[in-house]
Design a protein around this nucleic acid. Structure first.
Lengths: 223, 223
DNA sequence: AATAGTTGTGAATATTTTGTGAAACTATTG
DNA sequence: CAATAGTTTCACAAAATATTCACAACTATT
């Protein structure tokens, strides 16, 4: 699951946060000041940063600026009193949320989840191209030979999944997991229907979505 | 001629700067910390700010952020040693230049002139246009086919967000985050209602705000 | 060629999402 | 402290999409 970097100069605070977050399945790493935090951030993949404002050496604001130079990783500020937090300022330099101490376990966990949910997939969405198909994920726009094609939600997400993993064969179950979500219940044949409509809408290019008999489907541009 | 606001906690420094600048024809006003500086800035018209970084109460960086909330007035930072100045950080929050103490009279005068020359006439109101819609963000004014349209706060901010990110699809959650603020609690359907009223007020042009079924809304002028 | 299992397809049905008007609620302003 | 403008919620209608089903068409195996 997600890895969270906790930066606070008080050991007790770090341990408290860890205590709240690890039962939720988060992996926690710690740093006791901004410099150490930057070092940790460089070493490991981090999904979210919990950051104290008042710290020796490199304070929270400056740390945030440095991180924002090279990453859009979500950052939640921790602040001792609400009045020491300058909201406008914090959000300008790229904070995603803030929590005022003292906080409840629920609050921390809820905020972390909320921020992760919000920021998921928010980073740069490039264009995908395959033969005559061009997909702009951000705008949710698809063109085939320059002509706009209107896709429904599921069709679009299927196409994007295929384009992100060209050549890979997906079973219907895998497609249901990744496009419909793991909680989907119902027939796997619904995939077939969406593949059908997607192929029709893509016209000639629909042939790029190939049936792998007895297994599932794949997107193959080498035809 | 131009009025310069000098903010520094050392009286000697302020007088030194005044000594250099007044012979050049500049009018100088002084403040000895950020709070006083903000007060002065609110009271009088200021063409340029000379700002010390290290100050009690509200430091230079924070001060700069506050000013940038409402003005594009040029700001030159003053710093005692070059290593205390974080250039990237300063430029990000909107500094125009910086001067390292100690400085020569010539240097100060030259930098002030240079910055004023550079920024003169640069504060033209940024207008956004899309088809028949023209938005003057500074004046919070919207016209459609030349006719003024009165929008409420939320409607206006929605429209500006859309215009700043044309083509990008926003989920209702993202819109709530960015227009209502990250701590909004309540139904996401309130977005729908504002989209509705915005569309009605924009008339024909309201069609440019498109519904992306199952996802959210986007502003698309390529229809 | 017969068979069993798999996939394609069109149409009917079910479900989800969005639009909308009105009412309730909240600021804001004189 | 009214009056007004703005915001949010609600309930239902309307629209769009998703799912299922039945059967045809296909593939692989004997």
């Amino acid at each position: 699951m997600a890895t969270i970097l906790i930066i606070d100069d008080e050991k007790e605070m770090r341990e408290l946060l860890r205590l709240y977050l690890e039962p939720e399945g988060f992996t926690c790493i710690e740093a006791d000041d901004g410099e150490e935090g930057l070092a940790q951030f460089g070493r490991r993949h981090v999904d979210l940063i919990l950051l104290d404002i008042m710290m020796p050496k490199l304070d929270g604001y400056r740390f945030c600026m440095h991180v924002r130079e090279r990453s859009q990783v979500p950052i939640i500020f921790l602040t001792a009193r609400s009045d020491e937090w300058d909201r406008v300022y914090g959000l300008k330099i790229g904070a995603d949320d803030y929590i005022v101490k003292p906080f409840s376990p629920n609050e921390v966990v809820a905020r972390v989840h909320a921020v992760l949910r919000r920021t998921k997939g928010a980073d740069a969405a490039p264009q995908y191209e395959a033969g005559p198909i061009v997909v702009d994920e951000k705008a949710r726009k698809v063109t085939v030979n320059g002509k706009t094609v209107l896709l429904t939600l599921k069709e679009f997400e299927l196409l994007v999944l295929f384009l992100k993993h060209r050549g890979q064969v997906f079973t219907r179950e895998q497609l249901l997991d990744r496009v419909w979500g793991i909680h989907y219940v119902g027939s796997t044949r619904t995939v077939d229907t969406h593949i059908k409509t997607l192929r029709i809408k893509l016209g000639e290019a629909g042939q790029l979505i190939q049936t792998v008999w007895g297994v599932g489907y794949k997107f193959d541009e080498t035809v």
